[in-house]
């Protein structure tokens, strides 16, 4: 039972991450590989504030979102000067830079040693230290973010995003501020990712830089791609599928040392298969909007 709850918590964290990436990657067409970086910024902010300064969850959550948002604004103002392939490479660079800061700025992040002993979440005196209560809390955040994203993508702003991903120059000619819309969507998605980071830090109670590598970024991106880029429900299902798939390896009786690598190999294979299968469908993205 504990094991199932643990899996459900992980699924909800990954649903949060992949749905927030869906806003940039799916709707505005900006394939970002730096998403895990913002997740990591959230996790590290929450960990440092609660371990070193004993701040409560209700303070660390907004602060992490704020910091993550600030980093996202600074980064996107620069990286959005480029388009398409260059943007992917630049976000790859951002991911490398954020990881290098986590790994090397030992005065604050303790480098590769990580930060142990992160306390469990307490809201107004009520401790979320059992798995079932933590699951309910994370489901609460998932539903809020889902609701917000659903509304954002249906709002006029969401339609601007769809328009600019279809044809940037045309959207510009209609008087839409494309650059600003991209920055806003990138920032919102980074802030939502940091919520997942805060939950992760408090749940695992120990973080180190290896949880925030480029491989995880590719994993989140593959969830979004497998889920069909712009469909929040399908992305949630894809997240559940990809988190549960490697657990099947455990039942075959594969040793843990091999299972970690096999897990990533499976993601890679699934990703390539989906691209092969859907490469025709992705071509006309407008069909997603009309259907």
């Amino acid at each position: 039972m504990e094991y199932i709850l643990h899996l459900l918590i992980f699924i909800s964290i990954y649903v949060l991450l992949s749905q927030s990436l869906c806003l940039t990657a799916g709707y505005s067409g900006l394939i970002s590989l730096a998403h895990i970086g913002f997740y990591g910024v959230g996790a590290y902010t929450a960990a440092i504030l609660s371990v070193n300064y004993g701040m409560p969850f209700l303070v660390t959550l907004p602060l992490s979102m704020l910091l993550s948002g600030l980093v996202a604004v600074a980064v996107s103002v620069i990286s959005l000067r480029t388009v398409d392939d260059y943007f992917i490479i630049i976000t790859l660079g951002i991911q490398v830079a954020i990881f290098s800061v986590m790994n090397n700025w030992q005065g604050v992040t303790r480098g590769p040693l990580g930060i142990p002993g992160i306390p469990s979440i307490k809201i107004l005196g009520f401790p979320f230290d059992t798995k079932i209560s933590f699951l309910l809390l994370s489901l609460f955040f998932v539903s809020i973010v889902w609701f917000l994203l659903n509304n954002i993508t249906r709002s006029p702003f969401g339609r601007v995003l769809i328009a600019l991903s279809e044809d940037e120059i045309f959207a510009k000619s209609l008087g839409k501020d494309v650059y600003k819309a991209k920055i806003i969507s990138f920032t919102i998605s980074a802030m939502f990712a940091s919520i997942a980071g805060v939950l992760y830090a408090h749940y695992i109670s120990y973080i180190d830089p290896t949880s925030f590598t480029i491989n995880e970024s590719i994993f989140i991106l593959s969830i979004v791609i497998i889920g069909g880029m712009r469909n929040l429900l399908k992305i949630a299902l894809a997240a559940a599928f990809l988190v549960l798939l490697p657990e099947a390896l455990r039942f075959i009786g594969m040793p843990n040392s091999i299972a970690a690598n096999m897990r990533q190999i499976i993601y890679g294979i699934v990703l390539i298969m989906v691209i092969f299968k859907n490469s025709e469908n992705f071509k006309s993205r407008s069909s997603y909007y009309t259907s």
Partner: peptide
């Protein structure tokens, strides 16, 4: 994206 997938597979 496919090349990222191949990279993950080969590295692992």
């Amino acid at each position: 994206i496919a090349s990222l997938g191949v990279y993950i597979i080969m590295q692992n």
